[in-house]
Design a protein around this nucleic acid. Structure first.
Lengths: 187, 187
DNA sequence: TGAGCCATGTAAACGGTTACATGATTCC
DNA sequence: GGAATCATGTAACCGTTTACATGGCTCA
């Protein structure tokens, strides 16, 4: 029934519901605190997606007002859970797409004189250090407060992979900067 | 004069021209062989972008037919070179955005039974190994044949960073798979 | 009492991909 | 002779971001 095309954002919503987020707002908040590093999203995507998933029977909605403030709570249906698992089991012909303006700049850094090359590397290095720090803090102060923290193994692992990524950039750039500084003094 | 808004794709085109690519086709080919790992693009972006850059005086076009086949050759103007350098020098408030469906899947892997978790990790690991291999081969057989290979220091460095990224994923997953397999046998 | 967060949505703009269309050249 | 590659573009579609709009709740 109903040909609904599920995209990564669909699975992110289903996955966050499964982890215990209830409202669209909570899903966005949880995503900001966890998946945003490798799959950023916005409320303008989450709300329509929830409506779409409900229309197709993958989630159910019920009223969950907080005082006079209206709120919708969603839960996964059996079909929703099955769809999530099917995606996780499906073959991975994925783009694994990385879009990094930082790397693009670095790629073309030969166009700059030495001093400016060093400045660029320093900026990228500091940015990477901050990005790593941000992931690290997310892990320690989970901000997934209201999420089901029991039996959750993979989110911190993905966090570690992200940290490792930024770490390797910092390491490589530190080394490179030293090399280039050394060259300069031997000129 | 002329408020042209330059995007990453603009700088990729300017940068590739600077490295010696002449036609739109050559820019795309060079990008596929180098920057595609962290800034993929398509001909449908390159051609309109070249036209836009020409309209705004950042590049100049001249006819460069090859036999009966028409071809356009582009070169950077002074303004174009200046724009490229200005971008490389500008503050880095960049998204450093990474979009990885593989990591998104891994993040939600707790929804699967152990066997399927292992299968997912194996798929992601193999995909990462291939991605690393692809970058590695690009470096050895540069495919930047017609590009100015002299005084190009940064492209291989960016390649190494990419390799390091996929390497760290492979390493972490290998370790994790071993851990989980060990648990299972002690059940 | 006011700032900041919770909460939900819509509309427009933007960037990127895919599909389509066409034709010459090169190499096996 | 035919396949792969060189070469240039356009049109439609799709997913995402940004801006807009509204209003209640919480805490200092």
């Amino acid at each position: 029934m109903s040909a609904i095309k599920l995209k990564p954002i669909s699975y992110m919503v289903l996955g966050m519901l499964r982890l215990g987020a209830k409202s669209g707002y909570a899903i966005k908040k949880a995503a900001d605190a966890s998946t945003s590093a490798f799959w950023p999203t916005s409320l303008a995507q989450v709300y329509p997606e929830l409506a779409r998933l409900e229309r197709h029977g993958l989630v159910t909605r019920h009223e969950d007002p907080h005082g006079a403030r209206a709120r919708s709570a969603y839960v996964l249906t059996e079909e929703g859970e099955a769809a999530l698992r099917a995606w996780l089991r499906s073959p991975v012909e994925m783009p694994l797409q990385v879009r990094s303006e930082a790397m693009l700049r670095l790629f073309f850094a030969d166009a700059l004189p030495r001093e400016d090359q060093l400045a660029l590397m320093r900026r990228v290095r500091e940015h990477s250090r901050d990005a790593k720090e941000r992931i690290h803090n997310q892990e320690r102060r989970p901000a997934l407060d209201d999420l089901d923290v029991a039996r959750i193994r993979y989110p911190p692992i993905v966090g570690q992979i992200g940290e490792g990524y930024y770490d390797s950039i910092v390491e490589r750039l530190t080394q490179l900067e030293a090399e280039i500084e050394a060259e300069q003094s031997s000129d």
